[in-house]
Amino acid sequence: MLWFFCANTPLEDGETTVCDGRQFFHEISSSTKELFNKKKLKFTVSIFKDEWQKKYQTNNLNTLEEICQNNNTHLTVNDEQSILIEYICPTIIPSRCGKYQVFINSLLPTKQLSSKILKFEDDSEIPEDVVSELNEIAEKITTEISWQKGDILIIDNTRILYGRRGFTDDQRDIYIRLCSPAFSF
């Protein structure tokens, strides 16, 4: 579960966006569903030594290896102790209750912000027409949350895709926490 808390609203814009992964799956064309059933996504990131030490709050390679293993991430350590991290995941997963399929992943924001790190598991490119289809679906079914100070939003991180609209001021202050629910679905 993800918890959002609005400590301060932005002066304008900065809405949080949410999109139901179950509904998203139903909107995807049959050919794209077939492609996603055949191919998993692969996120590949190179990180310099000082950057990974700061990010993972350790300078111990054994600790880093344990972190990667616990997160199903493949780690390659280079001679100068820079690292290469590869994370492979499906684009479509069974829901938490197993009764339906859900489109849930970071494909769209990654393609927008850092497209070089994302390909299919076999290193083939994700076709632009597929990315366009997904963007059209996302825009069609996304809901925007306009924050009021003190608002709380809780979402199921295994079903709901989320993001935010851009903003220019430094007033927006939204706290986000990830937790495991203490109840069953």
Score class of each variant (00 low, 15 high):
residue 31 S to Q: 04
residue 184 S to W: 02
residue 106 S to E: 07
residue 164 R to L: 11
residue 76 T to W: 05
residue 91 T to V: 06
residue 8 N to C: 09
residue 153 L to Q: 08
residue 43 F to W: 15
residue 9 T to E: 14
residue 9 T to M: 05
residue 23 Q to E: 15
residue 132 S to L: 14
residue 134 L to D: 00
residue 114 S to L: 05
residue 80 E to Q: 08
residue 125 E to Y: 07
residue 7 A to M: 02
residue 26 H to C: 10
residue 43 F to G: 01
residue 73 T to N: 01
residue 5 F to H: 14
residue 56 Y to I: 06
residue 121 E to V: 11
residue 40 K to E: 04
residue 66 E to W: 05
residue 44 T to Y: 06
residue 71 N to C: 08
residue 78 N to E: 11
residue 17 T to A: 09
residue 147 W to A: 01
residue 157 N to T: 02
residue 41 L to Y: 14
residue 83 I to W: 00
residue 54 K to T: 04
residue 165 R to N: 13
residue 25 F to Q: 01
residue 147 W to I: 06
residue 74 H to T: 09
residue 60 N to I: 08
residue 112 Q to D: 12
residue 97 C to V: 15
residue 96 R to C: 07
residue 87 Y to H: 15
residue 136 E to H: 11
residue 135 N to R: 11
residue 142 T to F: 03
residue 137 I to W: 02
residue 148 Q to F: 09
residue 100 Y to H: 14
residue 26 H to N: 15
residue 184 S to H: 12
residue 172 R to D: 03
residue 164 R to P: 08
residue 113 L to C: 04
residue 58 T to E: 02
residue 140 K to I: 03
residue 21 G to N: 08
residue 28 I to S: 01
residue 9 T to W: 00
residue 40 K to R: 15
residue 93 I to Q: 11
residue 59 N to D: 09
residue 19 C to P: 02
residue 137 I to H: 02
residue 33 K to N: 08
residue 60 N to Q: 05
residue 106 S to N: 14
residue 126 I to F: 05
residue 51 E to S: 11
residue 57 Q to H: 15
residue 174 I to V: 15
residue 95 S to V: 03
residue 162 Y to H: 15
residue 2 L to Y: 08
residue 100 Y to K: 13
residue 88 I to V: 12
residue 90 P to E: 12
residue 38 K to D: 13
residue 56 Y to L: 09
residue 104 I to S: 01
residue 102 V to R: 06
residue 63 T to M: 10
residue 143 T to A: 15
residue 94 P to K: 14
residue 133 E to F: 13
residue 85 I to C: 14
residue 155 I to F: 08
residue 22 R to N: 11
residue 85 I to Q: 09
residue 29 S to H: 07
residue 67 I to T: 08
residue 33 K to G: 02
residue 3 W to C: 02
residue 110 T to L: 06
residue 154 I to G: 01
residue 13 D to G: 08
residue 153 L to C: 13
residue 55 K to T: 08
residue 82 S to M: 03
residue 142 T to Q: 15
residue 124 S to H: 10
residue 180 S to N: 12
residue 92 I to C: 11
residue 127 P to L: 07
residue 138 A to W: 11
residue 175 Y to K: 15
residue 91 T to F: 06
residue 130 V to W: 07
residue 182 A to L: 15
residue 173 D to Y: 12
residue 159 R to D: 00
residue 117 I to D: 05
residue 83 I to C: 03
residue 84 L to S: 07
residue 161 L to C: 05
residue 138 A to I: 04
residue 49 K to H: 09
residue 96 R to V: 15
residue 61 L to G: 02
residue 104 I to E: 00
residue 62 N to M: 13
residue 106 S to T: 01
residue 124 S to L: 10
residue 164 R to K: 12
residue 6 C to T: 03
residue 117 I to M: 06
residue 45 V to Y: 07
residue 139 E to M: 10
residue 84 L to F: 09
residue 168 T to E: 12
residue 138 A to C: 11
residue 21 G to C: 14
residue 19 C to I: 13
residue 90 P to D: 10
residue 86 E to K: 10
residue 98 G to A: 13
residue 116 K to S: 13
residue 183 F to H: 15
residue 77 V to A: 03
residue 66 E to H: 04
residue 8 N to I: 01
residue 7 A to T: 04
residue 163 G to L: 03
residue 147 W to E: 13
